[in-house]
C-alpha cells in the first residue's frame, strides 16, 4: 500500500478540474517563505515533501495545497528546534486578539 502522497495509479475516476483561482495573499507569502527557508538552508523540497507525506490520509486529503505546506513547514521548523509548537500557539493567540 503506497503512502498518502504517492498517487501514481491510485484508483481515481475524477475528471481533471481545469478551474484556477486567484492566489490569496497569505498563500503567496507561504509560497515565498518556502523559498526563503530554502535559501537559508532550513529546508529542501525533499524535506517539505517528507513532512507532507507523514500526514495521515484524512489530513492529507482535507487540507488545501498551501495549508499542507504551512503544516509541513511548521513540522520542519519545530524539528530543527527553531521554534516550538507552544510558541506558535501563543503567537497565534496574540494575533487573533489583535484582529478582534
Amino acid at each position: 500500500m503506497p503512502k498518502v502522497h504517492d498517487r501514481g495509479g491510485w484508483p481515481n475516476e475524477d475528471p481533471i478540474d481545469h478551474s484556477e483561482h486567484e492566489m490569496e495573499e497569505w498563500e503567496r507569502k507561504v509560497d515565498a517563505l518556502n523559498g526563503v527557508l530554502g535559501e537559508r538552508g532550513l529546508k529542501t523540497s525533499d524535506q517539505l515533501r517528507r513532512a507532507i507525506e507523514s500526514m495521515d490520509l484524512e489530513t492529507y486529503e482535507s487540507l488545501a495545497y498551501y495549508e499542507k505546506w504551512t503544516a509541513a513547514m511548521e513540522m520542519l521548523l519545530v524539528e530543527q528546534g527553531i521554534m516550538t509548537t507552544d510558541e506558535i500557539d501563543a503567537k497565534m493567540k496574540t494575533l487573533e486578539q489583535g484582529k478582534k
Binding site: 497569505w26 495549508e67 503544516a71 497565534m92
Partner: peptide
C-alpha cells in the same frame, strides 16, 4: 492556517 502561517 493563514493565521498559523502568519504566526510562523
Amino acid at each position: 492556517y493563514s493565521l498559523r502561517a502568519e504566526a510562523i
